[in-house]
């Protein structure tokens, strides 16, 4: 599995900054169509201070956010833009979480673009750890002025 975009390259393509930098690497990218990315879950992530004390479980809502970042990269220009466009998470549909994600896990995220209309794109996303499904669903990303 090769790296298509490093963490530094992702930072130049997405507007998010700490504590909302979610992806460690992009391993596949077909602009406007699909992509795959990795997210490493570390016990040093401050979110585990509260979710939950003594029982660290990575929040599902942040898995959705991470998948949204990959969708943004699929929609972004292939060349590094001067100022990354901000995409808005417009809809979360039919999301299901089947396995807990814990520190030490490496989450593989896949996003595939579907219907587009009026600056909005519907994505199917799937997340897995060691080949086992952890979550899946649909996200709609809206790019203003597109």
């Amino acid at each position: 599995m090769s790296t298509v975009l490093t963490a530094a390259q992702i930072l130049r393509r997405l507007p998010h900054r700490h504590p909302f930098v979610m992806l460690d690497a992009v391993t596949e990218l077909v602009p406007s169509q699909s992509g795959a990315a990795l997210k490493n879950i570390s016990i040093s992530d401050p979110v585990f201070a509260g979710h939950f004390p003594g029982e660290p479980i990575y929040p599902g809502v942040l898995l959705i956010e991470a998948a949204g970042h990959l969708c943004g990269l699929v929609m972004a220009d292939l060349d590094e833009p001067a100022a990354p466009a901000i995409g808005y998470l417009a809809s979360v549909k039919r999301f299901r979480f089947v396995t807990l994600v814990r520190p030490g896990d490496q989450v593989r995220i896949r996003a595939t673009a579907g219907t587009r209309f009026g600056g909005m794109t519907d994505f199917s996303v799937a997340l897995s750890v060691n080949g086992a499904d952890v979550a899946s669903g649909s996200l709609v990303i809206a790019l203003p002025n597109s």
Partner: peptide, 13 residues
Amino acid sequence: DSLDTLEIVSLVE
């Protein structure tokens, strides 16, 4: 609303 538009496009397709 506009999100429904996207859904209609998908359903019709």
